[in-house]
Write a protein that binds this DNA or RNA. Structure first.
Lengths: 250, 250
DNA sequence: TTGTCCACCATGTCATAACAAGTAAGCATA
DNA sequence: TATGCTTACTTGTTATGACATGGTGGACAA
């Protein structure tokens, strides 16, 4: 079958490969070429658009980069499955995971202090160094066994207000949202493994040198103001941090 | 000034543009070409590597895709500023994530076996116990230092196909998506801390008893079929798992 | 019937060549 | 001086052609 010269490309300053790319993209999106179907081969496209192979390859290469098609060496070029374009990572953390499994949790406030922000805290919360912030230390218990130490840094006034709440049974995030009217958005997490030192071991009942999961979490409001910076130290032997992430569009 | 023919490219099956790309990447990462400095022009590279311009352009194009360099029409090619901290929260393979930050990584395949699925693997991948699956063990290197051991379980046929690929330099996720046409969706992660045992310590150069981040990752296609189940053991001292999540629950 | 080999078609790599177009600097002219 | 032109770079686009390599199926032999 002779592939007919179907499409007239314009002589405009728009490069040929761009024009071809757009035509092919349209055909993929409108279903002319369906997912997992084979596209016309490079030589077919070369003939039907009356351009050189290098031009066709540049168009196809761009579409491949964009994730619309994929190639298999020796077989051909195929249309990709369309991807959902969302990049949400939903975090399922301590309370939720434990509650769904029917466990009982509570927190014990170990200390509350107003301290000058050190370099890291200041940078994370967007404050000046040595500006005063609230530091809340809590030990979390699962079925009466200590499982983590949470060290939270918040703006001074927010912390002073929080410390009067029932932090033993209520979640800080829920208080911030439901009682104080903050709207929480994204959080940045950094997770690493370390060994327990003596003081941490005493608080969460671990031997010195036992493995600990250390999480730094900076939580932002929906308008991207940093609000809460925490260090979370989880017993490595008794806890798994579980989350579900999505793959974004390329 | 006459650009001298400096580097001898090998005749190996590795494409010329790949070799050139790696050489240039190394020079960028080791500071031979510094950020915001102009790279040698295409014609200079053409002469010094003694290849055609199309080959040089393919190498430069790949580096540009990876974000290491940028071009200005009519002026030249420049080294990008290394990105400080970025994105994440998306599902990314290790190599993919590191590459976007301009780090040099490669993997060494330690073993490839066809093994019967144990209870956990079978359950995660939705197979029957003792059904045969592919097990790929890789040690990943960041800037030439070992940083993690990855143990991947995949359906037998997928693994047999994968093992023929250039796993040393390519990310499995990208192969699955771009070459095989899988569309990856969500992943479930479980993260915990543990201590290195002797054999793990040997592989990633750690003392026995050093802290290790252990991640279980089950990756699904967009139509929710489990495809890849991995155990990732990261050196606790050298790596932080960083991600950005949306408001979840504590 | 089964297995091997080869032709054919697919994409991958690479060379040579030409012209287009953006940038910048130097030089000539108004 | 200021303007504009020439020139010599740069990257961008495109053509033609060649050979390498992977995948597949049919021809053919055992």
């Amino acid at each position: 079958m002779e592939p007919k010269k179907e499409t007239v490309l314009s002589l405009s300053p728009i490069p040929l490969y761009t024009q071809i790319k757009e035509i092919l993209r349209t055909r993929i999106l409108d279903g002319t070429y369906k997912a997992h179907e084979q596209m016309p081969s490079e030589s077919e496209l070369t003939r039907s658009f009356d351009v050189s192979r290098i031009t066709v390859r540049q168009a196809l290469g761009d579409l491949q980069k964009a994730g619309l098609i994929f190639k298999i060496h020796g077989k051909g070029t195929y249309v990709s499955q369309p991807k959902a374009f969302q990049n949400i990572g939903k975090l399922q953390g301590f309370g939720e995971a434990m509650a769904t499994m029917g466990y009982e949790t509570f927190s014990q406030v170990v200390s509350f202090k107003i301290v000058p922000a050190d370099k890291i805290v200041a940078k994370k919360l967007g404050l000046d160094e040595n500006e005063m912030v609230s530091e809340i230390r809590r030990v979390r218990y699962l079925n009466r066994a200590p499982i983590s130490l949470d060290v939270s840094y918040l703006p001074r006034t927010v912390g002073e207000r929080l410390i009067k709440e029932d932090l033993a049974h209520r979640d800080i995030f829920l208080i911030l949202e439901n009682d104080y009217g903050y709207s929480l958005g994204q959080a940045e997490l950094q997770i690493e493994a370390m060994l327990a030192d003596e003081s941490l071991g005493r608080l969460i009942h671990l031997q010195e040198g036992a493995p600990v999961l250390r999480i730094e979490r900076l939580t932002f409001t929906t308008d991207n103001q940093p609000l809460d910076f925490e260090y979370l130290y989880y017993r490595g032997d008794a806890f798994q941090y579980r989350l579900r992430v999505e793959r974004g569009r390329i």
